[in-house]
Design a protein around this nucleic acid. Structure first.
Lengths: 364, 364
DNA sequence: TTGTAGGCGTTATCAA
DNA sequence: TTGATAACGCCTACAA
């Protein structure tokens, strides 16, 4: 990754110039023939192709072509911190799948870029001495920013300055770039309504990591949006504000820990709302570990509509969102923007899915 | 991804030449100053840096630099078919995490390349007309091939011809490139020994997708290696060959289906060995759906040592492998090979972990 | 310590 | 239909 000798072993790969010479044509003609991207007589094309075969020419060098064309065909997906966390979230897998499908179909490819909190600032001169990576030294046509975990806003100026097309998934919304998202507030409210309707007055909320407090003018990310919506809905519908515990990461373990903190209170809440299905699974485990019946003793709800592979015919009550579609749409926004359009934000529909993990409040 | 106008909106990004002109030095001096990679007087450097700031120079263009240096810093990870499948395997997340950590630390980045069965042949002239992706048109220094699903061997010639450094994970082993793997046979044998010791004579095996039969001379992949080892060990230790069902994909659903086929036999086996923990989870669900007690009625074992987040304090009996380490080692092999070394294969240690899902055979 | 020259492999443009 | 020319933006011998 550091060394840069080109002279590897034997003789170097054949280039288009070699092919042209071998075929007795000019480089430009050879280019046209090889790419079938211009008027070339059938005879010449055949001659060039034969020469290419003879020389073992492997097609245009992607780097050179990209430099010349000003396009690399690479779409970066910026994920938070460690890839392991990113992928331990089942959503991410689905999202990336949708993204890859569309980008791949358009001839592009996906670059996975984990951003460590430090290496964000690609704003200045970028004179980062040694080959530090950090978004600065990566060739990309576009970047997809996933709200979860990364402060998208931090990276944005640097990317835009470099002429990179940017699309966000799940906001923030006021960044001035196209965004795909869902109605987080509406989904949260629906969940609270459902629980309130079951007679729950004392609801615990396990939130996703909230990230840095929003001191600048930026709109808050998913966790804060859902949190605010939950608080508002709880006050309005149950008369109580609810109790909030924040998970440090979106993992089952953290969900279990956070839920444990709530359930171990002198008077535990009668319902737990987790901001993700992964966290909700942790809630289920916390309840199970304490011998609590779900939903008899405590109701549990999630968010996302991920397939959790619960045993025993349990179905989590959750807000289902079209995650694969989200990835596809993000890709479409990228492609549209790359084509010069200025696409609008997209808000995808969600559904409240009532499962077997929520029931009447035992207080009733 | 297709259009190629460079003339976007305003005026183009400042280049190093611009900076040099602005600073009144030559381009080469500017290069040295910006990269701090040569002898430059403090005064000149300051002047150059100031000019860069003034012009909003954002650092060397990655594409141009790569072309010049002959290195892109990109390591491709070739995954099978759809990314969604790839990531639905918890192993992959961990593996990629380890890989990304090491590659990232060395200043490289990870390109995710899903390979559809068709687009494999990058051997010929590659004159694939339009911008079809398929590994051919991607700039990469190295590729990591994951056996699972993709016939690594198919891609190898093309990659090698292009001068791409290749490393495989989980074989096949006779490809002539460095490989990281584990003792699949030994692990399988240990599992069978464990079950035989518990008195099981009639064992069902749920295998991973086997892929195409090995008609050429190539060594078989993980599923076939584990399958052969299981068959041999079962014959040797139980006197019976065992019954084999193949899952079409490495998913919980497929595991459940395959296990169901075994459990619905007139005389079901007393133990199920799945070739992955994901499949094993499917086995557990199949048993649960039929009202069978595990391990009372049927024992279940897996392979991998993934955290399955089972409820109820259940711990799967499985063969634990150091998955993150596998990714790290693969990265180290890549880096070593890129540095000109010719690293040896690495075989990582595994451990039989006995959980609560295996017990004495009910036949006893 | 700085500048000059040349080229990495392609492709767009224009003229022939 | 083909060919010469000129970049794309950078880096590295080598010379001054």
């Amino acid at each position: 990754m550091v060394t840069d000798q080109r002279a590897r072993g034997g003789r170097r790969r054949a280039t288009l110039a070699d092919v042209a010479r071998e075929a007795g044509v000019s480089a430009s003609t050879a280019s046209l023939a090889v790419n079938s991207s211009g008027p070339v007589s059938a005879a010449t094309r055949e001659r060039v192709l034969a020469a290419a075969r003879r020389l073992g020419y492997l097609g245009p060098d992607p780097l050179a072509r990209s430099l010349r064309r000003g396009r690399s065909g690479v779409v970066a997906v910026v994920v938070s911190e460690r890839l392991g966390y990113a992928f331990s979230d089942p959503m991410m897998a689905t999202l990336l799948d949708g993204l890859a499908e569309e980008i791949g179909a358009a001839g592009g490819s996906l670059l996975l870029v984990p951003v460590h909190r430090s290496s964000g600032g690609t704003d200045g001169t970028g004179g980062n001495g040694g080959g530090g990576t950090g978004l600065g030294g990566l060739a990309m046509d576009a970047a997809v920013l996933l709200d979860c975990g990364v402060r998208a806003a931090d990276l944005l100026p640097g990317l835009l300055a470099r002429g990179v097309t940017v699309v966000t998934i799940d906001g923030p919304l006021d960044l001035g770039v196209p965004n795909v998202g869902i109605d987080d507030e509406g989904g949260t409210r629906a969940l609270v309504e459902h629980l309130a309707g079951l007679g729950h007055h004392d609801v615990g909320v396990v939130t996703l990591p909230l990230g840095a407090p929003v001191d600048d003018g930026t709109a808050p990310g998913v966790p804060r949006r859902r949190t605010a919506a939950a608080r508002a809905a709880l006050v309005a519908l149950t008369g109580h504000p609810g109790r909030f515990v924040t998970a440090d990461r979106n993992t089952v373990e953290e969900g279990e820990r956070a839920a444990g903190a709530l359930l171990d209170a002198p008077v535990p809440p009668t319902a737990l709302v987790a901001q993700s299905d992964v966290l909700a699974l942790g809630c289920l485990r916390a309840a199970s570990a304490r011998g609590l019946d779900v939903p008899g003793d405590v109701s549990v709800a999630g968010f996302d509509g991920v397939d959790l592979h619960l045993l025993e015919g349990t179905r989590l009550t959750t807000v289902e969102q079209p995650t694969a579609r989200k990835g596809q749409v993000a890709a479409q926004l990228v492609l549209a923007a790359l084509a010069g359009d200025r696409p609008d934000d997209v808000r995808l529909p969600i559904t409240l899915r009532i499962g077997t993990t929520t029931g009447p409040s035992p207080e009733r």
